[in-house]
């Protein structure tokens, strides 16, 4: 029997496999393919105070071993989430985490206060790293002072576990990790997508309506792994690693580099049961290697 449980402070996760925001809807979309309650957690679609229609079509371009997206945080807003989605998903036996977005500091504060009152949501993931919105998003996550202010402001009103999701589109991601840790983040998740673009040479125009978008998929895995390794060494709070994880082997690389948990993202578009397959693969790896606890391999390469 292998112990797969991990903790963020006193919040227990039965295993270290979560779905990444924007790649699992609200969990219900995956019900046909596997039992979502088997996962350690699900991070639901990026949510804002007001409904957002997102960016114009086309929002997606396939790239070598990956894809660009420019969805732009399309969601129906917190009112709709509370009344229509929350009742449907609060029965899942897993940690449901809401990815929180805003255009202004006040948006982040108000939204975090609202979600704090939802009993079945034990944590939020503060998204200061979305590359696809004009206002807010990555602007908060690519300026140290703004990252500090938004984390501090949300920490002041949000009483449960605060995870801050970092952008890789900075000179030194470790500086951002240290700042959000100083301001009281309980955990740090990384990486969000890398800013990129593609051009359609037949139409002779950008492939995305927004010109640039966020790159995800296995193409970014080495970048993500490098950043997770750097950040995990520099902070004391648990790090949640993500970026291009396709298989259990990929996930294990993140644990060995220092991640306490992983989020599974783009692969779910291709193989909707991937999160649970990865979970099973991690368990059999630990058994094969003779470890009885996932915690024994977290940061193993740094020992």
């Amino acid at each position: 029997m292998v112990n797969l449980g991990i903790n963020i402070g006193d919040l227990h996760f039965k295993n270290p496999v979560l779905t990444a925001s924007g790649t699992c809807g609200y969990g219900t979309e995956l019900d046909d393919f596997f039992d979502v309650s088997r996962l350690g957690g699900i991070v639901v679609k990026g949510t804002t105070l007001e409904p957002r229609e997102g960016n114009a079509y086309p929002r997606m371009a396939e790239t070598p071993s990956g894809m660009l997206n420019a969805v732009g945080l399309q969601n129906k807003g917190i009112d709709y989430f509370e009344s229509n989605i929350y009742p449907k998903i609060s029965g899942y036996d897993t940690n449901i985490i809401v990815n929180v977005n805003g255009s202004t500091l006040d948006d982040y504060i108000s939204l975090s206060e609202r979600i704090d009152r939802l009993e079945k949501i034990p944590a939020i993931e503060l998204n200061i790293s979305c590359p696809n919105v004009k206002k807010g998003g990555m602007i908060f996550g690519t300026n140290l002072q703004s990252a500090r202010e938004v984390t501090r402001a949300v920490r002041a009103v949000y009483t449960k576990k605060l995870i801050v999701k970092l952008s890789p589109n900075v000179t030194n991601i470790v500086d951002f990790a240290k700042v959000v840790e100083e301001e009281g983040a309980d955990s740090i998740s990384l990486i969000n997508t890398l800013l990129g673009m593609a051009v359609d040479i037949n139409m002779m125009k950008p492939s995305l309506s927004t010109v640039t978008g966020g790159l995800s998929g296995p193409a970014i895995k080495p970048v993500a792994l490098g950043m997770v390794w750097q950040v995990a060494k520099a902070v004391k709070v648990p790090v949640i690693g993500m970026g291009g994880i396709m298989t259990a082997s990929d996930a294990i690389e993140f644990f060995l580099a220092g991640a306490s948990a992983v989020q599974i993202g783009t692969v779910t578009f291709i193989d909707p049961a991937a999160p649970v397959k990865i979970l099973e693969g991690i368990e059999s790896y630990l058994q094969r290697k003779g470890f009885s606890d996932i915690k024994d391999i977290i940061g193993y390469i740094n020992h």
């Binding site: 114009a56 929002r59 997606m60 396939e62 997206n69 969805v71 399309q74």
Partner: peptide, 17 residues
């Protein structure tokens, strides 16, 4: 025939107005 990534409603890439 919009471009899509997932096909089952999680990527929100194939939207139409």
């Amino acid at each position: 025939e919009n471009l899509m990534a997932c096909g089952f409603g999680i990527c929100l890439c194939c939207i139409v107005e």
